[in-house]
Amino acid sequence: MRILITGATGLVGKHLVGRLEDVVVLSRNADEARRRLGKVEAHAWNPEAGPAPAEAIRGVEVVFNLLGEPVFEGRWTEEKKRRIRDSRVVGTRNLVSAIAASESRPKVLVSASAVGYYGHRGDEELDERSSAGHDFLAEVCVEWEREAMAAEKLGVRVVCVRIGIVLAPNGGALATMLTPFRMGVGGRLGSGRQWMPWVHIKDLVGVMLHASSHDAIRGPTNGVAPHPVTNLDFTRALANAVHRPALLPVPRIALRLALGEVSDILLGSQRVFPKVAEQSGYVFEHPDLAGALEDLMTSQSSSA
């Protein structure tokens, strides 16, 4: 089966490529993609400049769309926010335009989205039927999903995977958090009462592959573990996993001064559940945080 991936050199993309064969990737730098990913067919594409090249789409049965400017790298200037939006919204629009022009269209498009769709919701239990929020990231996610869902009019089944905080053995959110915790200076963020919708990288890739092969799954699907935790519980679990204390909370005002508007994401609360994945038969390999962290720490040790 010929499979196309955009954003393949990112954290999720690299793990997804590792689970597949006969992979075509679209990248701003095709040579770099080949070097980093190994045996893939790579095509150069600037997602904001126009439709993807026709030769990359030809013969593809499944498309995984993982486009997106990193959200947590750097402060949110107006230019940064434009790149966050356009890389996702315009990039996905141009991908769907290429699908529309293709002589042989894929059967399914699995397009990334984010739990940022829901905005800050406190203790409210959220699933795929819940409404969208109203902040910047929520608005981006709404537009992003709308562009992806436009492929339905072309006869393509579309799934939008709303991704939570991805925990992986090397890179991503966990790598950023581990350094202060290993130094014994980790701690809760703000009050620590905010909910964190996390997911082990193996399960996120598993949910995406599951969605691609189950015809009954359409529209939004939450890519999160079935047991969300508060930031305080996450802090305790991570400290326990690295055998260090977690004694130094980071006040809300300090986060705001250090990160600006990005701090709103870290302090926002989203109690999200993967109802579609579970009801369609997906069985999580790492449903609980303690077990997930133990697996990730073991993976880090074995690869060191």
Rank of each mutant, 00 (worst) to 15 (best):
Q300L: 14
A211N: 08
E125A: 15
H134W: 15
S302W: 09
P251Q: 00
A138M: 05
G122A: 11
S269M: 09
A175S: 11
E152G: 09
R83P: 00
R19F: 06
E32C: 05
E32M: 07
A44P: 01
K153W: 05
A151N: 15
R162V: 06
K81C: 02
D215G: 10
D203W: 02
A132S: 12
D86L: 06
D295K: 08
N94A: 01
V63S: 07
W144A: 15
A52H: 03
V89Y: 03
A292K: 09
P53Y: 05
I265W: 10
G171I: 02
L255S: 03
L204R: 04
R256T: 13
Q194S: 11
P197I: 09
L20G: 03
R182N: 04
S280N: 06
L248M: 11
G10N: 04
D203M: 13
V140I: 11
E152R: 15
T9G: 03
R35Q: 15
G18F: 07
G184C: 08
E145T: 11
L267W: 02
R146C: 10
S269C: 07
D203H: 10
S212P: 14
A225I: 10
E79N: 04
P70M: 00
L37H: 03
P197M: 10
A239M: 01
L255G: 00
G68V: 09
G281Y: 06
G68K: 02
V89L: 08
E294R: 13
E55H: 03
S280F: 07
V185N: 12
V96I: 12
D123V: 13
V205F: 04
M177W: 02
R93N: 08
E285I: 02
L232R: 14
L95W: 06
M196Q: 14
V250M: 07
R88N: 01
G291Q: 13
E145G: 14
R58W: 11
R75Y: 09
V205I: 14
T235K: 00
T92A: 08
L247W: 12
V158Y: 15
G268W: 02
L167D: 11
R85V: 07
A56L: 07
L37F: 00
E48M: 06
P226C: 04
R129D: 15
R105P: 13
